[in-house]
Simulated assay, not measured.
Amino acid sequence: MEAVRVRLFAAAREAAGTSETTVEAATIGGLLDALSQQFEDLGPVLTRCSILLEGVRTTDRAVAIEPGGTVDVLPPYAGG
């Protein structure tokens, strides 16, 4: 399994204390579980986030992540 680049935005960044990290995961579900374990305060935030794999939104935890892939974690936001 190869490391996946994870970019965290807004509340996800605040909960993790970083804007970017790497996680070893083969699927979206594995990545979300690993992030929740690595950053205790991030778990509750992840339940409300959009997950983008290579720029495409997914809600399927079984989706495979290509080695060296990039995942963006985007919490809901308001404004205008």
Rank of each mutant, 00 (worst) to 15 (best):
M1Y: 01
E2C: 10
V4D: 08
R5Q: 14
V6D: 09
R7E: 15
L8R: 08
A10N: 13
A12W: 06
A12S: 05
R13Y: 10
E14S: 00
E14V: 07
A16W: 06
S19F: 06
T21A: 10
E24F: 07
E24P: 04
E24R: 14
A25Y: 07
A26Y: 06
A26R: 11
A26C: 09
T27C: 13
T27I: 09
I28Q: 05
G29Y: 15
G30V: 12
G30A: 03
G30M: 09
G30K: 01
L31R: 02
L31K: 00
L32M: 14
L32R: 11
D33Q: 12
A34E: 14
A34C: 08
L35W: 00
L35H: 03
S36P: 10
S36E: 06
Q37L: 13
F39T: 00
E40H: 13
P44H: 03
P44V: 01
V45H: 07
L46P: 03
L46R: 00
T47R: 15
T47Q: 13
S50G: 10
S50T: 14
S50V: 09
L52F: 13
L53F: 04
E54G: 01
E54D: 14
G55C: 05
V56L: 09
R57M: 11
T59Y: 11
T59M: 13
D60H: 12
A62S: 14
A62Q: 13
A62R: 01
I65M: 07
E66K: 13
E66Q: 15
P67I: 05
G68H: 10
G68R: 04
G69E: 05
V71G: 11
V71T: 06
D72T: 01
L74P: 12
P75G: 05
P75F: 01
A78L: 03
A78M: 06
G79Q: 12
G80D: 08
G80F: 07
